[in-house]
């Protein structure tokens, strides 16, 4: 191997990398919050009776889950302006991430809801709780607890997927990698360092979710 690694050459770009990390983190947080909220709404629609809304949500979920993220991204960024909807690169990227996570979390949360025994629902209704109350107080908490690991893994997958946003000039972590690579041509060193940063972000995110879990399900904690 006649190649010497020059990791030191990356130091002048630490600012750029830091900014990339910040963007990726912000994108991940906003996507996680919005995606899970929309997913909960979508799951509520899907779990109910077969209405137009539940079918529309079903079609949306299938469309998103069965096409690659990068194609969705290109469609939003390049395709939508031709019919008059123009979004900046950042908006397009965020939108693509949110609709992606929303589709997956709809399916995941729905599976959680369906695993709740029907008897609990009936019991809650008999006790005089309204439909909304039954959903938010009786069905949703144990459902979320059940699918929490799956949901959080999906959030991490979507965060890692944001690497593709660099393709439409969003200045996140991979953009920083590509940018540095185009300036000093040290492709391997750059991608190595950035990959390690992604790994750290993923680990950090998982720990963060564990912390949230601890605070979100206090009752369940007491019981177990």
């Amino acid at each position: 191997m006649d190649y010497t690694f020059q990791f030191g050459e990356l130091l002048p770009y630490s600012d750029l990398i830091a900014r990339g990390v910040l963007s990726t983190v912000i994108l991940a947080i906003v996507t996680t919050v919005l995606g899970c909220l929309l997913g909960t709404l979508g799951a509520a629609a899907r779990a109910g009776k077969q209405t137009f809304l539940s079918r529309a949500v079903g079609v949306y979920v299938e469309l998103i889950r069965n096409t690659p993220f990068i194609v969705q991204l290109f469609f939003i960024f390049f395709g939508l302006p031709t019919i008059g909807i123009k979004l900046t690169a950042g908006e397009a990227g965020l939108l693509a991430m949110v609709i992606n996570l929303a589709a997956y979390s709809t399916e995941i949360i729905r599976a959680g809801i369906e695993s709740i025994p029907k008897g609990q629902l009936e019991a809650a209704r008999t006790l005089g709780l309204s439909r909304t109350q039954t959903f938010t107080r009786v069905v949703l908490p144990p459902a979320l607890e059940k699918i929490y690991p799956a949901l959080t893994s999906q959030c991490i997958i979507v965060m890692l997927g944001s690497a593709v946003l660099s393709q439409i000039s969003v200045e996140e972590l991979t953009f920083a990698a590509n940018f540095i690579q185009s300036r000093n041509f040290l492709s391997f060193e750059v991608y190595m360092v950035i990959t390690v940063i992604y790994l750290l972000l993923a680990i950090l995110m998982r720990q963060g979710f564990k912390l949230i879990h601890y605070f979100m399900f206090p009752n369940l904690r007491a019981r177990s």
């Binding site: 960024f77 390049f78 302006p81 031709t82 123009k86 900046t88 690169a89 439409i168 000039s169």
Partner: peptide, 8 residues
Amino acid sequence: ISAYLSGQ
């Protein structure tokens, strides 16, 4: 080029 043509 696509970014210019689509007005981005």
